[in-house]
Write a protein that binds this DNA or RNA. Structure first.
Length: 557
DNA sequence: CGCCAAACTTAGGAGCTTGCCA
DNA sequence: TGGCAAGCTCCTAAGTTTGGCG
């Protein structure tokens, strides 16, 4: 891998290969069929360093610590030790014995000089450099993750049956490596060890695969994948949005199709129709069935009777835990036929029974493919998110004007973004100091308001030829007007900040920006409104979406 | 078909750095 | 000049989709 010699050489190479400007070649690539590459060269994956015993020397338990460990060992198989309260109390006392070391360690790390920290990072980057890039058909490409996951405690979300189980240390013997048939097999970075298997699968884009054998069935392992700004990921991303645009083009006939479907005499068809209606209208996930060893969450097809309330006036309330055990709670009006069908699906069932008992995700996707080539349920989320953003820009356009500041325009963008996040139910945990912080900001707002009022009063006085004696206040009408204008602008900014703070309390805007909204909508809007794109996209997104940067200002999704 | 594995995208939170204000 | 919120990247869990197999 000659090209991986220095960071500068890499940057130059990466800059040089703009795949989106070489569409002809990209077209040719399709002739390769299912194959994603002919040559693939890389250095494999690195490993989490072996555990460093505390302070580099073996840590003997103090007699006190050892004795306490023994106490627990004596009762560990008794019912007593299974009681949550017992475990909680014991754990607390136990951890107190050890956490002094950890907090000391943390403190030492924190107190290193800025220079020292910087040097450490630079050295790490230098070490990682050869692992960070691969060669795909001769082109240098960035890799996203180059180290296997460290051993530790599994942190499942929500009520996960496996939460707290141990994740074992991944060794080269757990790793399968995918390289080109003519390319060198990467050297195993751990002496005395060797890779589990070397394969050459050009239909896959992953470089390494590793699996913790200890975790159960639903764990299908992890991959070393290309970075988001690589050609292959970029092409896939663009294809995703093009497919969503195709859905937009066909949406009328698709709507007619599922409307007809839910009017069928066949319950299977009714369920397919209603499910598609809900996925289209509410941007729900498809909802695959889940295993015993996974958290109990649902999506559209796996909704249970207890997750829906059929209300008056064609309203329904959906209340369920979705992906990541995030709660979805929404009361909406649906079409009369949908309401009627849902009522019949609920009829005679128990709360834990499936609402759509005759279908599943796979059948639903089969149905979607009858209507549009390549259509699957997730495309509706991409389509809905992108259309929502575009519509928000249009509907709210009168809220901003050319003379507005960049900050105000950016706030406007966020307002539109929030509607998308709401649609997709992208929630986050509120900052634990949120209320306190908001109060402080509101106080600042009040002060700014008072300042404006004060200046307004002073202006009135000055116009009558009078003046206050306060030396802080302007002495002429002109000066006062300038000051007032400034104060009003400051007040408006603060009001926007307060609003943003409160509205973003439980909403995560990042997810839709990264995964759902066609970046070309945002970029063309920025061009129209003369907002620098960096104000909307952080550096990683600027890189991820470079393929979309040359879009015209009048792009329509 | 139903079931399962493989391969990929989507997700929230941890934890770091940055930048602002008192 | 240090305290703290905001911004951002990293991490890895948790989804979806497809296709092969009995």
């Amino acid at each position: 891998m000659q090209k991986v010699s220095s960071q500068q050489a890499i940057d130059t190479n990466i800059q040089a290969k703009k795949w989106w400007e070489r569409e002809a070649e990209v077209q040719q690539d399709h002739e390769k069929g299912k194959n994603k590459w002919k040559a693939l060269e890389h250095h494999g994956v690195t490993f989490f360093p072996a555990y460093q015993p505390h302070g580099g020397k073996p840590m003997d338990l103090t007699p006190e610590q050892e004795e306490i460990c023994n106490w627990w060992a004596q009762i560990v198989d008794q019912d007593f030790s299974k009681k949550p309260l017992v475990r909680k109390n014991f754990e607390k006392s136990f951890i107190e014995l050890f956490d002094q070391y950890l907090s000391d360690y943390k403190e030492i790390r924190k107190n290193r000089s800025t220079q020292e920290k910087k040097k450490e990072i630079e050295e790490k980057q230098k070490q990682d450099l050869i692992y960070k890039y691969c060669l795909i058909d001769g082109e240098l490409e960035k890799i996203s993750n180059i180290i296997v996951e460290p051993p530790g405690i599994f942190r499942g979300r929500g009520e996960h049956p496996l939460a707290g189980k141990l994740k074992s240390r991944i060794m080269p013997e757990h790793v399968t490596v995918n390289v080109g048939p003519e390319d060198p097999i990467p050297a195993c970075p751990l002496g005395g060890h060797s890779w589990k298997r070397i394969i050459s699968n050009p239909e896959a884009t992953w470089l390494c695969h590793f699996k913790d054998e200890r975790l159960e069935k639903s764990n299908n392992g992890k991959y070393v994948q290309l970075a988001a700004d690589s050609r292959i990921k970029g092409e896939n991303d663009r294809k995703k949005y093009e497919k969503a645009r195709r859905l937009k083009k066909n949406i009328d006939s698709i709507k007619r199709n599922y409307q007809e479907k839910m009017r069928s005499q066949d319950v299977v068809d009714q369920q397919l129709g209603v499910c598609t209606y809900l996925i289209d209208k509410l941007a729900l996930r498809v909802g695959n069935e889940k295993g015993e060893d996974e958290a109990d969450t649902v999506g559209c097809c796996s909704l249970k009777v207890k997750n829906i309330q059929i209300e008056e006036n064609n309203q329904i309330t959906l209340d369920f835990l979705g992906k990541d055990s995030i709660r979805y709670l929404n009361t909406v009006e649906v079409e009369a036929k949908v309401h009627q069908n849902l009522k019949s699906f609920v009829q005679g069932k128990n709360p834990d029974d499936e609402l759509f008992d005759r279908i599943n995700a796979s059948k639903l996707n089969d149905y979607l493919k009858e209507m549009m080539d390549d259509l699957s349920a997730k495309v509706f989320r991409t389509y809905n998110a992108s259309v929502t953003l575009q519509n928000q820009f249009q509907e709210k356009d009168n809220k901003i004007s050319e003379i507005d500041t960049i900050e105000k325009k950016v706030q406007f963008y966020e307002e539109c973004n929030r509607e998308v996040a709401r649609l997709c139910n992208h929630q986050k945990e509120a900052n634990k100091n949120h209320d306190e912080q908001l109060l402080k900001m509101k106080q600042v707002q009040t002060e700014k308001q008072e300042k404006v009022t004060q200046l307004e009063q002073e202006l009135a006085k000055l116009k009558k030829g009078k003046s206050s004696n306060d030396p802080k206040l302007p002495k002429t009408v002109d000066l006062c007007l300038t000051a007032l204008e400034k104060a009003r602008a400051q007040l408006e900014l603060q009001e926007m900040r307060v609003k943003k703070k409160d509205e973003n309390k439980n909403l995560a805007l990042g997810t839709s920006k990264i995964n759902y909204m066609d970046p070309r909508i945002s970029i063309s809007w920025c061009k129209q409104k003369e907002v620098p794109i960096e104000k909307i996209f952080q550096p990683t997104l600027m890189n991820k979406f470079t393929w979309a940067m040359n879009i015209e200002p009048d792009y329509e999704f």
